[in-house]
Simulated assay, not measured.
Amino acid sequence: MVAGGPGLPSFHGIEDLPLPGGADLGSHPYRITAVFKDVTSLFPQSSVKVNDVPVGRVEKITVSGDDWLARVTMKVNGKVHLPADAYANLEQSSLLGEKYVQLVAPKDLAPRPDLNDTSGLRDAAAVRDVAPLADGAVIPLARTNRNAEVEEVFGALSMLLNGGGVQQINTITRELNRALDGRQSSARSVLTRIGAFAKDLDAHRGDITDALGALDRLSSTVAGRDARVGEVLDRLGPGLKVLRDQRGSLVTMLRSLDTLSTAAVDTVDRTRADIVADLRALAPTLKGLADAGRNLPASLQVLMTYPFTDEVLSGVKGDYLNVYLKVAAAPGTVILPAHGPAHGLADGPAHGGSAPAGGALPLPSVGEGGAR
């Protein structure tokens, strides 16, 4: 390793040399840092890609002594625009290929960089109202991930083979063959019914979703009234205790009701013929009442107020029930109260007699045309 003095270039090893055929960083690249839990087989000068297009390279890898996490510093072409909430994944080009860092925007607005045509780059951050990924930005551990290593896949496969997994699959297959032997038609029928059931569930997916939503609202309501529910449950204790103390009385009452129902059923069975006969005998009477129609209420009106009702008076003409007396005195007649024996009334002015003292005239008699 050769290190230069102040202001002089330094050489730390062959990893400082740029790899041939790497990504074009342009004239204004920017640096970003991603925090990974594991960066096995990732080296400086490894590629940085967006949608499998090289857009930069790994500049250096450091490990912090505080959390023992790897921090990968990358240089990215300045024409590549990514939102500040972008993800960084550690991926492998093939089964035994090189490792590289894949920068991924949120799936709904993932940019597709075209370094030869900057008009094709969409500023996803502007669309989603998120700040762009700027120089010096850090992608935290929560937004980084890595693919499974080949060694991990082979290790899991060896555990499956050496731990008896294949033998277990063989046992499961053999038992399934024994269970379905001679029952292929029943198995097909069950599978057909399961398929129909699944289709029916899919057709009622909206109803199921609504039911789950209603259940969620009910649960929220019950949770909001937790105190009241607890109070009700506390009050149920004394009531249940009373029911327990009166269990004998309740059993006796139920037995008595059973005996009563038996007697009632027996009574109805014995009197069924008589009840049917009575109902048949009532049929003509009920038919007559129905035929009477509106006449029956009018008759009841007369019956309840006999004999002085408007209906009776309108039906009797010229009898004493509707005789009216109207008495009219002659003009100038003075009516005086009686104060002595009535004499000389018959000889009034109409008959040539003398008038009483004071000039008062008696009322004319009924026979003189005063009555109507």
Rank of each mutant, 00 (worst) to 15 (best):
I61F: 05
I61Q: 00
I61M: 06
T62I: 11
G65V: 01
G65P: 09
D66W: 10
M74D: 01
V76Y: 02
N77C: 07
G78Q: 08
K79Q: 13
H81I: 12
L82D: 04
A84H: 11
D85N: 15
A86E: 00
A86N: 04
A88H: 02
A88F: 01
N89P: 01
E91W: 08
E91V: 15
Q92C: 03
S94Q: 08
L95N: 12
L95V: 11
L95T: 11
L95H: 07
L96Y: 15
G97F: 03
E98A: 14
Y100L: 14
Y100F: 15
Y100M: 13
Q102W: 04
L103N: 01
L103G: 04
V104L: 10
K107N: 04
D108P: 00
A110N: 13
A110T: 06
P111R: 05
P111A: 09
P111L: 06
R112Q: 13
P113N: 07
D114S: 13
L115A: 11
N116F: 11
T118P: 07
T118N: 09
T118Q: 15
R122L: 13
A124M: 04
A124S: 15
A126M: 08
P132D: 11
P132G: 01
D135L: 10
D135T: 07
D135R: 11
G136D: 10
V138N: 05
I139L: 10
I139R: 06
I139T: 09
P140G: 10
L141Q: 08
A142P: 00
T144G: 06
N145K: 03
N145L: 02
N145I: 04
N147Q: 13
V150Q: 04
V150Y: 11
E152A: 14
G155R: 14
G155Q: 15
G155N: 13
A156K: 13
A156N: 14
M159V: 09
L161E: 10
N162L: 14
G163L: 06
G164D: 07
G165F: 04
G165Q: 04
N170P: 00
T171H: 06
I172N: 10
I172G: 00
T173S: 07
R174I: 03
R174G: 01
E175M: 08
R178F: 05
R183F: 01
R183L: 02
R183V: 03
Q184I: 08
S185N: 04
S186Y: 02
R188N: 09
R188S: 05
V190F: 12
L191S: 01
T192W: 01
T192F: 05
T192P: 00
